[in-house]
Every structure is written in structure tokens, then in C-alpha cells.
Design a protein around this nucleic acid. Structure first.
Lengths: 210, 210, 210, 210
DNA sequence: AATGAATGAGAATTCATTCAT
DNA sequence: AATGAATGAATTCTCATTCAT
């Protein structure tokens, strides 16, 4: 029997395969990290879980850090997408409403994969490449900052950079704290959390109004 | 006349020796962590830096985690002491002033040993015993909460627990963020940082007043 | 004509490699045990002697105990094979002759590698997995028991299990004692040893006949 | 108040104290061996259990092996005493009865401290000094041999040394096997065990009579 | 004599990474 | 490109023994 000739161009096929392998590896990394913790997440274990040989892992990632960094990046991209979408819709809204949407989006972002997020926060050392994967922060900063610029007149703070930092950090930290350490409070009353944080930051930007 | 009995108990000599060894080990751990990072901080390296044998290290700490945990605890205790002292003096002061003192104390606490603090934040995995040691922040919570209780009437937030969480988390996170990622801003204008954070939290507690 | 497919499966190469490594490790373990004793037989030393890295050792054996257990098992299997072969041929023979063959086979078994056998007896702690590996002597028990069952009528002992235990233990212990502690006696007069032990056990099974 | 002068001569006092310490150490060794196994029985642990400092342990025993050897020796002495007493009374008795008494005494000896005996058999490596502490065997051999000499005429074996070896080894091994691996059988029917073993060895010495 | 802190060689084991097939 | 066997440096931890007090 004649061997069937491949109908799909080789390159494309292998490109697709590559992509699938990379995704499988990232998925496996996430699962192993969550299940076993960072310290027990060896490259061999991850490759096995991905149904791929260690050799293949190193075909796509030069070292363990790069693998984890890629996963962090993917996770951040997913979170960022939510923030981006939310802030896109907010341009025309008043400050308080805009802040509320931002808080909600941040919360949604943190709920994308809380278990994985927790591992990143608690166990993955932020050093080397990992230290730099703060792209999430940077774009969030830029987005917020752009919105505030638009509303400059309504805002009581002169130094927009500082205000943006404070805003972003506060919302991020409070969301993180509650998602990680007080998930029950959120389950019970998500709206109250959003209200309070919104009030906190809105009050900061426009004192006296609240 | 009977031979004078030794007034200093026998044990004290070796007890002092023990204590010195433990201190040396903790100091060495701090130095090695800061210099080499968590991953390169092996027990042998730490013992060597402490001028002590590995055996001695394990005489006092059952494993590496316990050693680092003890250091974290010591560091936290030092930071906590500053917060405690500040809040002690604050009982009779008005809200805004009290908040300002709290922010200043938190900042001082973070400046006790920023390099070490950064290692803890970035590299030391929070698992096992380490996860629990954050419990020291429970005392901060209690202290703040007690103050707020006293001033309950002036405060616009009903749920004191939630308010305390938000307050503590916000001040801690902002301080951390600026100490770690924007040290220059602090060097340039520490007062402005304190002002802004104070305004943020005071505004949250007593809206309309600011 | 289509390219000839490789007749030898890909895997076989690496499978053979694996097998060779395992064999090399077991051989090295035996040699190191005999030369240096159990306590000095470190996994690193064994790996070195096998011309293999420690890592490979742990690829195939989860810990030192498993390695030694595998060696004990291999040794027992070799010994058992001799017993098995001997008892196979003995089914139709009379009791005294059968016992003699069993004694001879046991002696041969103990002479497979007396030095190694001595290490096992004297130095290898029988704990954990090792404790269970003596289970191989269960097959000896079963073989003997089956033979006795066949000859039940000629035997003066009612409880066959007890008789088998006594038989097996006696022959084993005497052989061990002489091989280990009185090798000269055996060198001088192997037949006398066989005669005496045979008489001992045959007399037990069929008193009055001897 | 005047210090009471010691009424008991110093030397004797400290000699008694020494003896007590040594006993405490041996007792502690036995308990730790049984509880934790040979590998986990460290000198520090033993000293602690004995209520004595490690330093003191080394005052009385030059090294760990000597300590264990002393314990083995003490245990053997206790066992031997039983054998000795039994064989003393047996001089005038006929072969079968004498053998029976010897088997019973051996069994009693093995029941002195079966747990400890098992540790010695299973876990304590017989090397160095330990290899030589077969004094038990040697004296037992001598005692049995002396008895057989007396009864030479009734015995069918010419080589008394060989016969003694076979006798001693057989009884010892069977007793050991049953005490260690078939304790239930003994609990149920101790007499049967004694009967069978007696018959085995008596039949060997005086064939045709049984 | 006793104490117990200190020692440090050495053991088991892991895991990121390489490379022959 | 994939495979997975092999590598070996590095790490944690133990424990018999010593010795200053």
C-alpha cells in the first residue's frame, strides 16, 4: 500500500504540532505547580505530565525558569485582557463608576486561576527573568494613567504618576489579600468588597465628594 | 568558712554559648540570603559564614526551613515592635494624626532591613511553617482594630474587621511597593508619601471631612 | 520497493542499555558489599564501581535498600533455582535419597557465592523490604511440602507444615553454619556433612528405619 | 548547719555509681534498640534515654560498638545461664530426657527478651568485636560436648565435635526460627515443639531407638 | 567525673540539563 | 524532532566522637 502523502504542508503541520506541545507543556506546568508546589515541580515531572520527553521540553524552553516565566506571562496576559477590556469601556464613565469597573475587573482577573495565582505569589521566586515579568503591572499602570489624564480636572491629586501607582497598588493588593486570605468574605459578599475598595480609591481621587 | 559557692550557675556559661551560636546563625542566614539569594543559601554555606559547623546548625534548627522561619520571625518581631510603639502613643490622638503615625511607623518598619525584607518578599517560599509566620501581622491587625474601636463614633465604616483589614493591607502594600520598587521616590520625598497614604486611609474612614 | 522497516524496534537499543546498567549496578553492589562491607557500601561508591553515575542508580532503584533488596532477590533466585532443579528430579525417589539430594542442593546453593551470602547473613539489616524478601524461602517450603505430601504414608509426622518447617530450617541452618563457620570441615569431607544431615532429617521423618 | 560527712567510703560510692551508670546505659541501649531499631539508635539518643550525657557514655564505652557489644554480652550471659543451669541438672539423665531439657532450656533462653533478640538477629551487623561475641555458642558447645562424652557409648556418632555442632546448631536454629517467625505456633503448643525437636536430635544420636 | 556544645566527614538523594540514538 | 538514559554537582541532614568548661 502506498504511503499517503501528507496533504498539509509540512511546515505548517509541525508548526501546529510545536504550538500544541508548548501549550501542553504550559498546561502541565500549571497543573504540576498547583498539585506539587514549586519545589517539587521538576522538569522531568512536568514533561511526563505533558506526555512529552524532557528532551522535547528543552527543545522549546532553554531552561526551567523560561518555562515558568512563559506560564507566568500567559497567566498575566489572561488577567491583563480582562483589565484591558474593562478599562476600554470605561473611558466615558464618571470617576466613581470607572473605579468600580476597575475594581471589578481586577477581582475577575484574580479569579481566573486563583490556585495558580497563589503559587506564583507564595512559592515562585521572583528573580532573574521572573523579576521582570511585571508587564502586567506596567500596562495596567499605563491604562489607568491614561484614564486619569482624561479626567485630570476632577482629580485632587497633582502628581498623576504617584496617584496611579497608589491606585493600582492599592486595588491589586486588596484584591490579592482578599482572594488569597479571605475568600469566604468574597463568597459571601462580593459587592461589599467592591463597594469598599471603590469608596477607598474614589475618595482618594476626589475628596469631599463622597 | 565554707568555700564560697559559685554565684553564677554552671549552666549559664554554656547557655550563653548556645545563645551566641544561635544569634550567629541567624545573622549569617540574613547575610547569606541578602548576598546570595535564597536558592544559593545552603545550610553549609550559612554555617560556614556563621563560623560554626553544620552540625551546630542542626543542633538548633531541625531543618533549613526552621532556620529561615526563625529569621523571618526575628525580623517580623523587630518590625512589629516599631508598630507597637507607635500605636501605643497614638491612643489619644485624632484619627488623621493616628493614621499618619501608623503610616510612618509602617514605613520605618519596612526600612529596618529593606534588602532582607525584599528577599523575604521575592524569594522565600511561603509554605509550611513560613506560611504561618505571617501570623505576626495578626497583632498589627489587633492593635489597629483596638484603636478603631475606641474611635468608632467618628468612623464611617460599620464592619470594623473589614475596615481594619483594608487599612492594614493598604498601608502595608503601599509601603512595600514604594520601599521595594520606588525607593527613589521615597528618598526624594518621604513626607509626600506619608501624606498621600494618610489621606487615602483617613478619607476612607471619615469621608467628607478631608 | 519501500524502504525496509527496521526489524529491531527502536526501543530495544535503549532497553538493552537500561538492562546493562541495572546489571552493572547489581554486580557492583555485590562486589562492593563483599569488599567493603555493608556500612561502607555507599550508593556513590557502588555507582562509581559500576562505571555509572549516582543519578543512574537512582533512576533504577528508589533508594539504597531497594538496590540491596534487588541483589538479595537475585542471589536468592539463583540459589532457589538449584533447589528447584534438585527437587524436580527427586519426585520419584525414596525419602532418604530425596533428602540427600535436597541437602546436596542446599549446600550447592550456599556455595553459589559464599562471601556474598555471608555479608547478607552478617551485615545486611533485615528490615523493611528486606524482611519480606526472605519470602523466597517460601517456595522452598512449598516444594518440600509437596514432596512430603506425596510420601505421606511413609512419614511418621502428622503435621506436614510443622515437619516441613523443621526440615527446611534444619537443613538451611546446618548448611549455613558449616559453610560460614566451618568451611574447612566441608572442604575436607563434604560427603560426611551430607551424610550426617541426611541421617538427621531422614531419621526424623522415618524413625526406626535408619 | 554542718554538712553531713559521707558515711560510705568515697571510692565505693563512685564505684557503685559507675556500675549504676553502666547498667542504665545498657538498659537504655536495649530499649532504644527495640523501640527505634539499630540504625536510629544513636549514642546521643541512648545517653539521653539513660539520663546521662554523651560524654559520660564515652567515659564507660570507647565507642558505639563496644556499647552494643556489652549489651549483647549481657544478653548472652543471661541466656547462657539458663542453658548452664539446665545442663548441670542433666548429667545423670538419659539421652532423650537430657536432650529434652536442653531444648527446653534453649527455648527459655530465647524467650528472655525476644524483641531484643530479634534486633540482634535482624539488625545488628555482626562485624568487628560483634563477630566474636559468640561466646554463648562456645560455652554451649562445651557443655553439650561434655555431656555427650559421658554418654559416648550410647551414641551412634563417632565424631563428637561434629555431632555437637550439629546438635547445637539444629536446636538453636529451630528455636530461633520458631520464636522469631512462628511465635503463634509456640503459644499454642509449646510442648509439641519441644517434642519434635527432641525427637529430631535424639533420633540422630541414637538411631533405631526412637 | 560529668556535661553538652561543637565538630565535620560522609551519606543519601535530587534534579536541571545534555546527548547518543 | 523526539526520546529518555545518563550525568554529577550540589544539597540536606546525621551521628559518632571530642573537648572546653
Amino acid at each position: 500500500m502506498a504511503r499517503t502523502l501528507p496533504t498539509i504542508p509540512r511546515k505548517s503541520a509541525s508548526q501546529q504540532r510545536s504550538k500544541a506541545t508548548v501549550e501542553a507543556l504550559l498546561d502541565a506546568t500549571a497543573r504540576v505547580l498547583v498539585r506539587d508546589g514549586y519545589d517539587r515541580a521538576s522538569t522531568n515531572r512536568i514533561a511526563a505530565k505533558a506526555g512529552v520527553s524532557v528532551g522535547s521540553l528543552y527543545q522549546y524552553f532553554p531552561n526551567k525558569e523560561a518555562l515558568v516565566a512563559a506560564l507566568v506571562a500567559r497567566h498575566n496576559r489572561e488577567m491583563l485582557q480582562l483589565i484591558r477590556d474593562a478599562l476600554k469601556k470605561v473611558a466615558s464613565l464618571d470617576l466613581a463608576t470607572a473605579m468600580r469597573e476597575m475594581v471589578k475587573a481586577t477581582l475577575d482577573a484574580h479569579l481566573v486561576d486563583p490556585a495558580l495565582h497563589r503559587i506564583f505569589a507564595d512559592q515562585v521566586p521572583r528573580m532573574g527573568q521572573l523579576a521582570k515579568i511585571e508587564a502586567l503591572k506596567e500596562e495596567t499602570f499605563a491604562l489607568i494613567r491614561a484614564y486619569l489624564e482624561d479626567r485630570r480636572k476632577e482629580i485632587a491629586v497633582r502628581d498623576l504618576d504617584a496617584a496611579t501607582s497608589i491606585l493600582a497598588t492599592t486595588v491589586e493588593a486588596l484584591t490579592h489579600e482578599f482572594v488569597i486570605n479571605k475568600p469566604n468574605a468574597l463568597d459571601r459578599d462580593r459587592d461589599r468588597f467592591v463597594n469598599e475598595v471603590t469608596r477607598l480609591v474614589a475618595g482618594y481621587l476626589t475628596p469631599g465628594r463622597a
